[in-house]
Amino acid sequence: MAYSGSSTPRYGDNSGGTLRLLVYVALAIALMVSDHRGGVLTRIRQGATIAVEPVWWLASLPARFIAFSESAFSNQTRLHHENVDLQQQLLLARARVQRLQSLAQENENLRELLGGTRGYRLAVQLAGVLDIDLDPVQQRIVLDVGSSQGVHVNQVVIDAGGVLGQVIAVTPTRATALLITDPDAAVPVQAARSGLRLIVYGTGRSDQLTVPNIPQSGDIKVGDELITSGIGGRFPAGFPVGRVTALSPDASHAFVAASVTPAARLDRSGSVLLVWDLPDDGTPTGPPAPGDLPTRRAAAALALRASASRAHAATPVAPAPAQSQLQQPRQPQQPAGSHR
């Protein structure tokens, strides 16, 4: 009864409401389109993100507190075991790095002989992942370093397993990275075994990547390791990306689609490494602009790496960069013998 009484005067409100709704919807769509295209609004958004950082910090507090109390109240024997374990790992990693350094030196010499192709020296920086969930459909993480620490857009993020993603936005104290599992992400890779070059796309699921269009004739098998190819100049070459878990014909039966398990641990926690390209011996070469790296040159570099890794096929390679300065290229874990 109360409703029927009030419905008549409300009618006028509602038609006005519809108009307002349309205005707001149009405004929202205009904002989305302009943000999607990336222009002024994207820059405004980066500025406004600074205002949001305290909220992110607040939201990450509970997780940080849990982590702290875990370490504060864990018992002595467990810590002792962990310590022994870590020391052993460190010893192994050091031994591997020793061998890797001689390898890298040799690689450098070979590159000099070839001339023209410059080797990359890579530096990495440790960064913590802020423990918050952003939008669940988009696969992103927030890092607790920002432009005041020298982080810049397009920097590659790795962890002990392999490539994790790429920085897409920075504020003075925070950086947002797009994970390789995001539907928007694509990484140029090559199969470590056959040298077949492919592009890996994210699926939106944190445990799966996909390669939708492999030619039928492509030399790829289940279990193949995929490493970054360096083509395109965005991701430095040689980092593991994932392993092929299944192959199936695509809808048109003209291509093969592969599903790939990412090599990095993508559960959005702990620490990650940010990769810097360093110019060789002070030569003024910045990171290559996207599309700047000629394909032939990259192919030559690949061939070189393949031969270098064949020469040391028996050398086990540390999966993680264990020191802050390591030399590029890292060796693929599978010897890429057949590619020349």
Binding site: T18, L21, Y24, A28, I29, M32, L41, R45, D135
Partner: peptide
């Protein structure tokens, strides 16, 4: 801004939500 979505996405969703609730 906080969830890192496109600017306007949550705004669109909540405005439509508000419209239906008001009606």
């Amino acid at each position: 801004l906080t969830f890192g979505t496109l600017i306007g996405e949550h705004a669109l969703r909540l405005t439509i939500l508000a419209f239906i609730v008001q009606r």
